[in-house]
Amino acid sequence: MSIIKTKNLRKTYYGVVPVNAVNGVNLEIQKGEFTAIVGPSGSGKTTLLNIIGGLDKATGGNVWVGDQDISQLTNNELIDFRLNNIGFVFQAYNLIPVLTAKENVEFVMLLQKRSKEEREARTKELLEAVGLGELVDKRPSHMSGGQQQRVAVARALAPKPTFILADEPTANLDSQSTANLLDIMADLNRKENVTFLFSTHDQRVIDRARRVITLEDGMIVKDERREIQNA
């Protein structure tokens, strides 16, 4: 069974002129996929990810995560749904600036009311997995952009979500940090079978994806799968 499925998904912004940011998207993502959404700026990548992630409501169509039709959920239900099912990595401002790396990762599990032992063990494990074992007590302002994004990935994984949504996670990173972050994501995907759905318009990132969905004017114009040797 697919873990994400959209049917005829639409989103129209009613501005001075109505914009069909997402225009009839039918999409299925299977468990363990490593998918990039690509397309020029303004093609609707962010809008699509926001609707799939339950941050925004579609104008038409449906989104299922597992067997839950999230179009039916109220805003309050969506918050809990996001907490327990979706890990988010944004382009920037991912972390709570006043918390250390460790506290940031722990925070979501605290929202989930997990036990102290579990929180501490998992935080340690995740920060080591993203290669930041020694930065646990640093605040975001004392980390590089790449390190912050790696903490964000650890934080996104902490609540054991169904999948991870990342909207242009490397847009603010230099190529070394980009490669580094992609290594970690690919590693988690391969070893832990974590499902990633990310948007990008960076060719080096696109090259690492095993499935590439191309958007243009809110419509899927290409959907290709390929075998690549990731890391």
Binding site: N76, D80, R82, A92, P159
Partner: peptide, 12 residues
């Protein structure tokens, strides 16, 4: 943006 992020990741 920070508050948006907090609500996104599930802070009610």
């Amino acid at each position: 943006r920070e508050l948006g992020m907090l609500m996104s990741i599930g802070m009610n």
